[in-house]
């Protein structure tokens, strides 16, 4: 019986160590947020952008601790490879091959440990690029490395 007691003792030690709480550090387990669903948010779902025009892309960012970086990506969806995450379905043009697609990829970093920020990026849509279905994807990271993304279907027209 002594032996069983010893084992039970070891077992309880093990269980205790397993259940010991860890209050060593408070971790940031919250992702930042990103939205275009407000009055000034741009572009909205199924928005049509004209070549030769300059637009200001706007999205709202927020984080519980500190925002770190954000990016904006515009690329064509001539092959209908995906749909946006905004719920609405836009009518897509027929599939086609790209000739001179518009590609916009830029990254920006934020300093000063901001908790809120509104993205404002001015983009001139070139006049010589392919018109048709495009995607607009925003993404944001916080200081810890959590990321959030949102994307929306748009069109570039003449």
């Amino acid at each position: 019986m002594k032996k069983i007691n010893f084992i039970l003792f070891t077992a309880s030690l093990f269980v205790l160590s397993a259940c010991s709480s860890d209050n060593d550090t408070i971790k940031d387990e919250e992702k930042p947020t990103i939205t275009i669903n407000y009055d000034g948010g741009f572009p909205q779902v199924c928005e049509s952008l004209q070549r030769g025009e300059t637009y200001t892309f706007r999205a709202r960012l927020a984080d519980n601790e500190a925002l770190a970086s954000y990016s904006l990506d515009l690329h064509h969806n001539f092959d209908h490879h995906t749909h946006d995450d905004q719920g609405a379905t836009c009518s897509l043009d027929a599939k086609k091959e790209s000739v001179k697609p518009f590609i916009y990829m830029e990254n920006f970093s934020l300093d000063g440990a901001r908790k809120e920020f509104e993205i404002e990026i001015k983009i001139l849509i070139p006049t010589d690029i392919d018109t048709g279905d495009y995607h607009c994807s925003f993404s944001v990271t916080d200081e810890v490395g959590w990321q959030s993304r949102t994307s929306v279907d748009i069109k570039i027209v003449n």
Partner: peptide, 12 residues
Amino acid sequence: LNPTSDYVETLQ
């Protein structure tokens, strides 16, 4: 593989 807060070509 540690996710940083930086971007390259709009990817984390």
